[in-house]
Design a protein around this nucleic acid. Structure first.
Lengths: 325, 325
DNA sequence: GCACCTAATGATACCGGTGTCATTTTCATT
DNA sequence: AATGAAAATGACACCGGTATCATTAGGTGC
């Protein structure tokens, strides 16, 4: 090496304050010249902590997973952290053993839990027991602020409600989500709040429960459209079910948006590809991943640090004024 | 420990032949009882090779990425390997430096390259230079067999061709893909071969080049449907473009499938959610990932080892006999 | 029963960093 | 210039495994 001991180089790399500015610069110069980079394995061994972050997901929507990955990696840029993926089956009891062995063996620096895994309190309890850092991504605060990325699904749903109300709709149906998803409650609450702002309320007769799947959306919409006094608009709590509503509208011979306005949630790729292109609430998934990453690891902070994210209503062609001119 | 030295335990763990059967069993028993698992960091440090596999992808289709991840993890079950994800921008020259620093620093056991990254010969050359194991996933053999998972896209396209031909279609259009994707050529060649089997050939006037995106599909189909003697069926080389064909059919007031049959490729989630549900060629993405994983790492081989994968035509409602009754 | 060869095991260094604590340097104070 | 405290640096053990090579155990031939 160039003048100093192994340990001093180590100090420079780890930003220890115990190095003279002069020495520090000299070492840094050598590091730049030689392109030296410490071995993560050896560092991890000595630290008893790997420079890995786990993404533990169980999301039927691949778009979510990939966007979160992207965002996390945005945050890890240049920090030397790697992202390892761990799909789990949230319904399987084995998931806890899987995660336990993962954490105990790999000693990851931390893990990220997107919804719906973020709502798995048994899993979170396990992580606490194992003293493993984590950040949850969910529609609502479930934990201390610096362990949470909150997507404010309610606000997005409220935007959808205001949009439909402002278009003149009064008979607005809701296809809700599975009760064991927090997002389902948040979106519904937000939707009702948005309606209330416009002096409307949700008619219980126009609510059907779905399961966040295409098939349940088809069925729920089929029932709603078969009502004597059928709704003029329907809000589905995710795009899969909204796509199902399209299908049932087609089956019933109803034109979207002339006879039925449809709004979805997620702005999945499918939203823009259906005919007519669907109005939907977009979540900034990549930014959410990035925020989670920034909360978890000591970021190099090249890019501005995010502090919050907000959903956004993307208005396309599946919503029209009622009564239609 | 229980009777033997550190090194002997190490030998047992690494399946060294230099241990007496008796000793081996004794050590294994203790390992089972105590649930001992070697530290991957330490092992990696000593081996100068991490127990990580990188997935280097640049695929606009999140379904592909997530399915490949699933398959790889299927293969890694119990092997102690972890999957780390590395999205790259295949058009950026920086990608090579990114991957070089990843491989040099992390020393991954190997990497998996799904299409289109698998066709990036500069990147593959780099991996060879770095002496990094890799497996490519592509539509056609590009390398030694044990470094390749071949998806036989041509055969899938041929199935689509035979299907349309057997339905009585004669004026069959093709929306091709970008020329810098091997899959684009393979699918096209396979499609022509399938037509030839039925005594048909592709009319150059009915071919439009697309770019594997929704928008290019819209445009290509728009042109095709505006022809004086318009096609009765169209095969798009991926589902995104096929969705675009739906859009243009809607815009032209044409009914699918009565006036236009449409077949896509990939069987993306969107295929089943469009109206009418779309016929498409399904690639066994998860199996492809699993096969790649089995080729790369010494698998525990609990599940049967895969040797090949084949595409499959999923017939839905976007294709009908012509002339329509 | 002894020499001898092979199979099985162990002692020790080492992988590439970090923690601890002793040592040296620096610099303000007297 | 001597003193002492604080700041900077280095020596060495250690993280938890594996490689190398020496050593011991076990079996064979005569």
């Amino acid at each position: 090496m160039a003048g100093v001991s192994k340990k001093t180089v180590s100090r420079v790399i780890n930003d220890s304050p115990l190095v003279r500015g002069e020495t520090r610069e000299a070492v840094k110069a050598i590091i730049r010249e030689t392109g030296f980079a410490p071995d993560p394995q050896a560092r991890g061994l000595a630290f008893r902590r790997a420079f890995l972050v786990g993404l533990i997901y169980d999301n039927p929507n691949p778009q979510h997973t990939v966007s979160h990955q992207q965002g996390l990696l945005d945050a890890f840029q240049g920090s030397g952290f790697e992202l390892v993926v761990r799909p789990v089956d949230r319904t399987s009891p084995r998931r806890l053993d899987d995660i336990r062995s993962f954490v105990e063996r790999q000693k990851p620096f931390g893990v990220v839990l997107p919804s719906p895994v973020s709502e798995d309190e048994a899993l979170v309890a396990l992580l606490k027991e194992l003293d493993c850092r984590y950040v949850r991504i969910a529609s609502v605060p479930l934990d201390e602020p610096d362990r949470m990325v909150v997507s404010h699904d309610g606000e997005g749903a409220a935007q959808a409600a205001r949009h439909l109300a402002d278009l003149g709709h009064r008979r607005i149906a809701l296809i809700s989500g599975p009760p064991n998803f927090r997002s389902s409650h948040e979106r519904r609450k937000g939707f009702e709040a948005g309606l209330a702002e416009r002096g409307l309320s949700l008619d219980p007769a126009l609510v059907r429960q779905g399961g966040y799947t295409y098939e349940t959306g088809v069925e729920a919409a089929r029932e709603l459209l078969a009502l004597k006094d059928r709704p003029t608009a329907v809000f589905a709590l995710n795009d899969e079910m909204a796509a199902g509503a399209y299908t049932s509208a087609h089956a019933a011979g109803l034109n979207v948006p002339a006879e039925l306005s449809v709004v979805g949630f997620d702005d999945a790729p499918i939203a823009a590809r259906l005919w007519p292109p669907m109005t939907s609430v977009r979540l900034p998934l990549r930014d959410m991943g990035r925020l989670a990453g920034e909360l978890l690891v000591p970021t190099v902070q090249r890019q501005p640090v995010l502090h919050d994210v907000q959903p956004e209503l993307i208005v396309r062609a599946s919503t029209a004024a009622f009564p239609t001119s």
